[in-house]
Amino acid sequence: MRGIGWHRAALAGSLLVGIMFLGIIADLVWQSLGVLSWHFLWSPPSEMGRGGIGPEVRNTLVMVGAASLISLPLGLAGAVFRVEYSGAPLFVKVFDRVRFTFLSLPTIVVGLLVYQWVIVGLGWPLSIRSGIVALVVMNWPFVVNVGIEALEGVPDTCREGSLALGATRSQTLRRIVFPTALPALVAGLGAATARLLGESAALIFTAGMNVAVHWSWGMPGETLAVHLWYLRTESLAPYANAEAAGTGVVLLAVVALVLYLTQKIAHWLKPRDYSRKSA
């Protein structure tokens, strides 16, 4: 066939991309094989080698979980106001500019600001709770975005239908708009959580690069992503590369699990077609 040279080149480029990503993940898994074990997953890290990532797993789950829970209502409120209530074009314009700029703000800047406010200003320690503050600040505009996209996906006819039946705004929101937007919301929150799981720049100077054996909100809270970075840049431990790879594999597994579960839940929440059964 004539005139498909560029298409052939594009196919070659696509194959290259596919091979590259497969290669990255395969390399990570391959290099981690030496350290991956239950021991690695449960034990505390050690500069002497043969340590684990137990505290990091715990810190990551706690901090990301708490930050998600806190930023969810904050973000949803902003999204609901923006989509369901705000009428003034000027407000919409300012709000959108602020949220998009805020959203694309480098997370190291979030780290810097939270460091200045919370660690220096309020005198909090480098700790799990300071890290949670950083994660909330960076997750807030993301959740607003997710919420706005989910709510805007609900057709206006749904709202009008309900309002025409005499329902109030809040009833319409609770009974009609929210359930319809829920699948998109859940999927979006999955993406938000995945983003938090992989965050490191905002956490190095807020949650720190150490772990405490006895867990507390006020103790340093190194996460998996920070640990990977630490192992691969500053650590002098033997097997640091393999342990970094192992940490990466665990991190990827957690991210994949979160994405998979939220996708499943989102799919399950989608309104199903019952018309066949009723026949």
């Binding site: 993406a191 990977l228 970075w229």
Partner: peptide, 17 residues
């Protein structure tokens, strides 16, 4: 959209290795 979620430190690790 799965690959979008790969943490950046993983890419840093790949860069180093």
């Amino acid at each position: 959209s799965g690959l979008v979620a790969i943490p950046s430190v993983v890419f840093g690790w790949w860069g180093l290795s």
